[in-house]
Design a binder for these strands. Sequence first.
DNA 1: TTTAGGG
DNA 2: CCCTAAA
Length: 605
Amino acid sequence: MEAVFVVEGNDEGKCEEIGVEKSSSSLSSPKQITDPVVYKLVRVEGDGRLVPATDDEVMEVEDFLVDEQIELPVVMSTGTVECISNESSSGKPQKESSEGLSPSEGKEADAKLSAHLEEIAPSSSLSLDVSHINESETKGECSKHPDGPIESVSSASAVCTSSKRDFYASNREICLDNLSIRELHELFRATFGRETTVKDKLWLKRRIAMGLTNSCDVSTTTFTIINKKLVKNGKDNSLQNAHDMHTEGSDVGAKNLGYEDSPKSHNSQLENHQVVSAKRSGSLSEEEYGCEDHTMDQRAAKRVRKPTKRYIEELSEVESRDHSPKVISSAKTAGHEETSPTCSARPLRNVSTNERTIVTRLDSLGGSGVQVPYVSRVRRSRPRKNIMALMNFNPSGMGVTAKLVKETLAVCTSLPESECADKVLKARSASEQIKPLFAAEPEKDKRRSVMSTFEHGKNLGLKQTDSSEENSDDSIAAVPTVKGGMRRKHHRAWTLVEVMKLVEGVSKCGTGRWSEIKRLSFATFSYRTSVDLKDKWRNLLKASFAQTPPDDGSRKHVAVPIPASILLKVRELAEMHAQVPPNLGASKLTANVTRSVHQTRSGYL
DNA sequence: TTTAGGG
DNA sequence: CCCTAAA
């Protein structure tokens, strides 16, 4: 049983990490993996030594891989390596995005891009809020198209009648090109829900673009996003694609869902947008099982929720010193688009070395195969208290778990390892007091229960950690109180990505089917209950129909405005589902929409 | 259990 | 976000 990997840079000599020892092997794969590589699970000791992993760890990683819905190699029981890719449901291998460059190439490209971007005169306006419904320019100017939008918008009402037409039938764009660093930082935060201190504009744009487009293919010279698709500039045919998007009837819907298509597949007719979403959710797609198959969906959701991934990531939460990619793909990438999983590791440009909190690592986002940056994972407040809870469920001595807890503590708190160990011990002794709390946890929090004790423990311990989207620095869904039992969900700001997912979910399932949406689009966002979705949608609705854009400036840095493009989608969906606020006359509405398209900024995350 | 609404 | 009624 070989396999599996994830190598992390190891800066501090203190913390051990699960690492991988790459060993050559020539397993044949059922897929077209030309250069199979088998990884052996090892631990990376502080001094760099590699020691064989324990069985526990091996299992952990296996779990992890199963959980990962992105293209990680999974060692099947047969010993063969299978590549789980986003394409698994459609059967064909995912084409490698243009990011599949060799490290050197990537850097070169980056340099060029940077140079190019510097040429572009920075605009003072926050063009993010500009929403067009026309094909966009890609010269980095994000110029407005005075009239184009109206036509498409007015068609929104038509959408209502044409039963199944996708609401994404018009193009909208978000332009990142002219944003200042500060604006990019804001957008970054809004998009991923975490801060970043990276000063590199290109990097920021790229990250944000990745998040907003649900893809890694952001190797463009300009960053204009239309409906979750990056409009490319230059040699390729994406401009054409963008044009096609808003001219081709039913094809539009699918494309505009924004999931990455290889250039080749752009021309394929995707009548049903579910096909696209299938790609997105990998093997758990609704394409295969259908929206109505609750059994499978639940199973899928369960899988995704397993804590192992977060667990691994927790261990990886170490600042990286080098600039090497943190996600390692099994297949070679460069030049082998046939065999390369999408979004496989890509060299990342890096960030100032003294910014220890920056980890340029790609993560899976919300189970949808989105790659997001791994940034600023530093704990803003106190160390996770729930780390302690971890011990309750594995009180069997300083085993692997305890060790890991110690490591985690070390990572999270920067405390000397000795101190961490101390805390661990204290935690253990305190377990008796903590345990009853969980046992007595009110039913409401069973939302995420039904796990083995050990898993439960891990989950509690790592719940708040895990990765980019589904993690947060310090929040826990619920905090049991000794007495009143009242607890409040630590307010968790909605990220752009989440909002987009919600909108997308509504577009697929319609409003009201929050559970369904939760399962389909928020499976990996263990927080965000269906009620949360409902509430958020209500807010979005309100925002989207807001007559007067809230005057910013006062709360400028408090909340990031929701891109008008998204609000527009919301509005369209609302109309489709007859959710238009009654006080809003139809004619008035049209006017409002028009206005919105041009300048609105009515709503915050 | 899930939705819809009010708070 | 929370809570509750209703389905």
